[in-house]
């Protein structure tokens, strides 16, 4: 395998549980940590709903996504970016989110994407 590192970004845009997208993206993110590649996660659109607290996913027979999101930091995935506009459109305050996130305005989102080598979308 080539030695040089590439920068990767995973873009999340879907709400949790109703589709497998959030879970799929998280599984890919955790796999990246094994390869020790620089990885950032961006939450846009309905994906910011993944960040709301107090999930009890067992009521619908699913695994708790927020518990797994909280694990990201343990895997050294700490570049978590959140679209400020998507939060405010949904009436979510940043202090409702327990993860260590960086809020981005729209121009900063464009800049983040511009600097990546590869982008995967979910």
């Amino acid at each position: 395998m080539r030695e040089n590192k590439k920068s990767f970004l995973i873009i999340n845009r879907k709400a949790p549980y109703g589709s497998s997208a959030a879970r799929d993206a998280l599984d890919v993110a955790l796999t990246f940590s094994v390869f020790e590649q620089p990885l950032s996660l961006l939450f846009m659109d309905d994906a910011v709903l993944q960040l709301l607290p107090n999930h009890q996913a067992n009521t619908i027979g699913q695994k708790n996504l927020s518990a797994n999101l909280a694990m990201l930091e343990m895997y050294d995935i700490d570049q978590l970016y959140v679209c400020r506009q998507a939060l405010s459109e949904r009436g979510i305050r940043p202090d409702q989110i327990s993860l260590n996130i960086t809020l981005l305005d729209t121009h900063a989102i464009a800049a983040l994407i511009k600097q990546q080598d590869q982008v995967l979308s979910f």
Binding site: M1, R2, K6, F8, D27, V28, T31, F32, V34, F35, Q37, Q118, L120
Partner: peptide, 9 residues
């Protein structure tokens, strides 16, 4: 999934 990450690299 490692095959996806490896493909990206």
């Amino acid at each position: 999934l490692g095959q996806l990450v490896e493909a990206g690299i």
